[in-house]
């Protein structure tokens, strides 16, 4: 097997925190560590789904993968370029072959730029494009089902879903090797969502593009991803082939997520307070909300370990046949 196109190794990301007075007085923590230690890889030509609770650090991981988050440890490798800090010179090369679709599509378009200029901006930045930019813009917009007259509009003149499609077109402009798609289907109606996902799938087949696919939508993830990584409080708690995640989830958090999708009328809820990034629980970080937590969980943090080939989970009781687990 070839080596993965994207590989994060023991990646650590933290933001400065607290107000100015707090920091001057030395009160409270100076940083909030969003990603304590993440290792993850995306195989070439495949799609890895990244799923997790809101605020768990998915966007941060996506941004870190192209050097747009304060990396304070570990490394990111894309292709054969490896970067270990936010201002590493390797990012220029990495960004050329990677593109990002932002979670907030409207905000990721310059309000004073026409959509035509926006979609072709990657070409302008990369240089070397000598075709007609208007034609290229029309072609790219056509790819996502928008008519050429959108090229002359401004972001505030289109709907949320149309803005989403423009950002998809922009991300595909340079035919990248790797696409980091942050919630690419949020705000799209079901039919357009289907078209978009089919388009991404076709690109993958034709050009071998790899995707890091961040999403909340489990129904979508089930159809388009090859593997899924589940994130909780900035750590990967389970990773497995998509089928396995849905049919045999091992981590209690994954089970709750899958349960919430299937439940109607509010089942599958996770009880308990959402833990804070600055005051992480001792032992297993999911223990404050885990229905299976035991004394062991409070005492010792479970390691992320392989419980079956290609299936990792970080729970003391993962991989044990039901019933024997604990009492």
């Amino acid at each position: 097997m070839t080596q993965p196109i994207l590989e994060a190794r023991n990646l650590r990301v933290r933001y400065p925190s607290g107000t100015l007075t707090d920091r001057l007085l030395g009160r409270g923590p100076r940083h909030v560590t969003v990603l304590p230690d993440v290792s993850l890889s995306v195989e070439a030509g495949q799609t890895l789904g990244l799923i997790g609770e809101s605020g768990s650090g998915k966007t941060t991981l996506g941004r870190a993968a192209i050097g747009l988050a304060p990396i304070s440890g570990g490394s990111i490798r894309v292709g054969d370029a490896t970067a270990t800090s936010e201002d590493a010179p390797e990012w220029a090369g990495i960004r050329r072959r990677t593109s990002m679709m932002f979670q907030d599509a409207v905000a990721s378009l310059d309000p004073r730029m026409t959509l035509g200029t926006s979609v072709t901006e990657p070409l302008a930045i990369a240089g070397g494009f000598d075709g007609n930019r208007r034609d290229k813009a029309a072609e790219l917009l056509g790819l996502v089902g928008l008519s050429p007259d959108f090229a002359d509009r401004y972001p505030h003149q289109i709907s949320g879903g149309q803005a989403r499609r423009v950002t998809v077109a922009r991300a595909l402009a340079l035919e990248p090797d790797l696409v980091i798609a942050d919630e690419p289907t949020a705000g799209l109606d079901l039919s357009v969502q289907g078209e978009l996902l089919n388009l991404l799938g076709e690109l993958q087949n034709r050009l071998g593009v790899s995707f890091l696919f961040i999403t909340h939508n489990l129904s979508v993830a089930r159809h388009v991803t090859n593997r899924i990584a589940i994130m909780y409080l900035g750590r990967i708690v389970e990773e497995a082939p998509t089928r396995t995640i849905f049919s045999a989830p091992e981590h209690p958090y994954t089970r709750a997520l899958i349960g919430a999708r299937e439940a109607t009328g509010g089942g599958g809820l996770i009880e308990g307070d959402v833990p804070s990034l600055t005051r992480r629980p001792e032992g297993c970080e999911f223990r404050t909300r885990c229905p299976l937590a035991t004394d062991l969980c409070a005492a010792k943090a479970p390691a992320l370990r392989e419980i079956a080939p290609g299936h990792t989970a970080s729970c003391h009781y993962a991989g044990q046949p039901a019933g024997v687990s604990h009492s």
Binding site: S54, A186, G187, H216, L257, A260
Partner: peptide, 17 residues
Amino acid sequence: DEPTTALDATTEAQILG
């Protein structure tokens, strides 16, 4: 206007509640 598009399944369920 699409208030839960950015929420994960469990948070969404809670917010809808």
